[in-house]
């Protein structure tokens, strides 16, 4: 157990430099809020480590020194009001210290006003439908073919030979960098959840209800995620790919798709 605690410590600090193949930790992501989320996560983590070292430390000292085999004589005390007051109030203080920055982040998460682009995302068993509210562009997005072939039971295709196995789609969502994007989620059948770790967005897509989230990507690139709420047999096979591109590339993309759908 101690070994594991150390291992985890090592793991999480390694993660700063780790490659994608041996990821230990949450990604920092590509938005201000994803970075804030990451920081909150690390802050709580280090609090837990600190408390853990303290508690386990005392316990281990006790396990070593207060063994019968080592000739320890048992004391007889059985309470101490002072000690109990201390170890009730200190955790309360710690928790309040954790809550304050967390609440600040939560306020920012809520603020989806005045977006540049609104996209309605409708979940289906088992694909996503994206509709750009004002641009007249809409399309379905489902698992890409190479993965589709390899995912069959005993398909004979080695998953390692498929690029981005299970994380590739036929039509990715394309958004411009630095724009405020509002996502509106709903579902056509059961509850799904749209999750892209690098955007720090995970939101349930619920039939009959519309949920909101927003992001402003600071980096361009391709970012992958998956459906995160059990939605039936192919729940594991409805990935999400978001391509963040420069503004002009986005305009070009929209134009080409607008003509395609008309």
């Amino acid at each position: 157990m101690i070994r594991n605690a150390i291992l985890s410590l090592l793991g999480l600090s390694l993660a700063e430099t780790a490659t994608a193949d041996w990821a230990f930790n949450m990604p920092k992501g590509i938005t201000d809020l994803s970075l804030e989320t990451y920081r909150l996560h690390m802050m709580v983590f280090w609090w837990c480590v600190a408390i853990g070292i303290l508690v386990f430390g005392v316990m281990i000292i006790s396990l070593i020194r207060h063994r019968k085999a080592a000739g320890a004589e048992a004391a007889t005390f059985s309470h101490s009001t002072t000690a109990e007051i201390i170890w009730t109030s200190i955790p309360v203080v710690i928790l309040i210290m954790i809550t304050i920055p967390t609440a600040e982040t939560m306020v920012r998460l809520e603020d989806s006003r005045n977006p540049d682009i609104s996209i309605v995302i409708t979940a289906y068993q088992w694909k996503w439908h994206y509709k750009y509210q004002d641009e007249g562009v809409e399309f379905y997005s489902s698992l890409a073919h190479p993965s589709l072939a390899a995912r069959r039971k005993q398909s004979g295709i080695d998953p390692f030979s498929v690029e981005n196995y299970l994380l590739e789609v036929d039509h990715p969502l394309v958004v411009p960098r630095d724009a405020k994007i509002r996502l509106l989620f709903t579902s056509n059948d059961v509850v799904h959840a749209w999750w892209v770790p690098d955007l720090a967005i995970k939101k349930d897509a619920i039939p009959g209800i519309v949920n909101e989230a927003w992001f402003r990507a600071k980096k361009s690139g391709t970012f992958r995620g998956q459906c995160a709420e059990l939605c039936g047999k192919d729940h594991g096979y409805m990935p999400i790919v978001v391509e963040v591109v420069e503004a002009d590339a986005y305009e070009a993309w929209i134009d080409s798709h607008r003509t395609n759908t008309e």
Binding site: E110, V120, L184, T186, G208, I209, V210, E212
Partner: peptide, 17 residues
């Protein structure tokens, strides 16, 4: 009330109901 668009459920009402 949410289905009717109250609170922050404006879009539920606008898009679906």
């Amino acid at each position: 009330p949410w289905l009717g668009g109250s609170g922050n459920s404006f879009f539920t009402n606008m898009l679906l109901w």
